[in-house]
Design a binder for these strands. Structure first.
Lengths: 123, 123
DNA sequence: TAAACATATGAACAATAACTCATATGTTTC
DNA sequence: GAAACATATGAGTTATTGTTCATATGTTTA
């Protein structure tokens, strides 16, 4: 009739081996769940080569959607969708000038993050 | 009989507006395709909160798979799969001691990248 | 060598996401 | 106001991925 608890978690070992103070340190320094999800969402933006290309383009100059599409050899629609993602993550900002919308980098962390990435992959 | 070329690319504007020297700068500073894919692959590893948690855990101490699973309240299998991804990206390294495998951080860039991310999301 | 334990991994499933296509919105010019 | 242009966006399709489940591999001890 009674179901044993340990039967429900068969894949984890029973005891933790590291010292309690390490466990405490981990819990103290671990960001809260919400921050962790925000972090993952942010890095997901960098996890696509099209978006990385757009960021590299914007390193040089602010630019309209049309020019970015031309430069990267992609459709206006595809670029616009990706700019939306970059905008939502506050990595780029924009200003309108007549029919044209100019995008530019919004954040100084972008360069550092990409540079550290480049260093890691070894280029 | 002949199909016009411009009918095949209806979504891009015809001309590029920025000056040629900007175009040249972009092409000069843009990493090559392979590097861009490697970069995207690297950031894809950071794009998951489970893997970020594992990295934060390893900030404190090297640790066995079992302890990481316990600490994060997840199955051994799930953690092992993610450690594999982290290993393949050379973000963690491991050493075997009897039945136990200890994982630790392999790269100093990890902290910088995560710290910049934290700063960006504003914590 | 058998049993117990720690870890790794293949397959399946559900969820997410990039691009395309079609179309809508916003702005300027005639 | 209509036409032309620049940009944005919803829906659909295909591809990718995180977790679970079952099981395999590797190590120690009896």
């Amino acid at each position: 009739m009674m179901v044993e608890d340990d039967l429900l978690e068969p894949e984890r070992c029973e005891f933790i081996h590291v010292h309690q103070d390490v466990v405490d340190q981990v819990k103290e320094n671990m960001p809260d769940e919400e921050t962790l999800y925000d972090l993952a969402d942010l890095f997901r933006i960098f996890a696509d080569s099209t978006r990385i290309k757009i960021l590299y383009v914007l390193f040089e100059s602010e630019m309209c959607v049309c020019d970015i599409a031309q430069l990267l050899g992609m459709t206006q629609s595809a670029i616009s969708h990706q700019l939306r993602a970059l905008k939502q993550s506050k990595l780029v900002k924009y200003r309108r000038e007549g029919k044209t919308v100019f995008y530019s980098l919004a954040d100084s962390h972008v360069r550092t993050i990409l540079n550290q990435g480049i260093e890691h992959v070894g280029e």
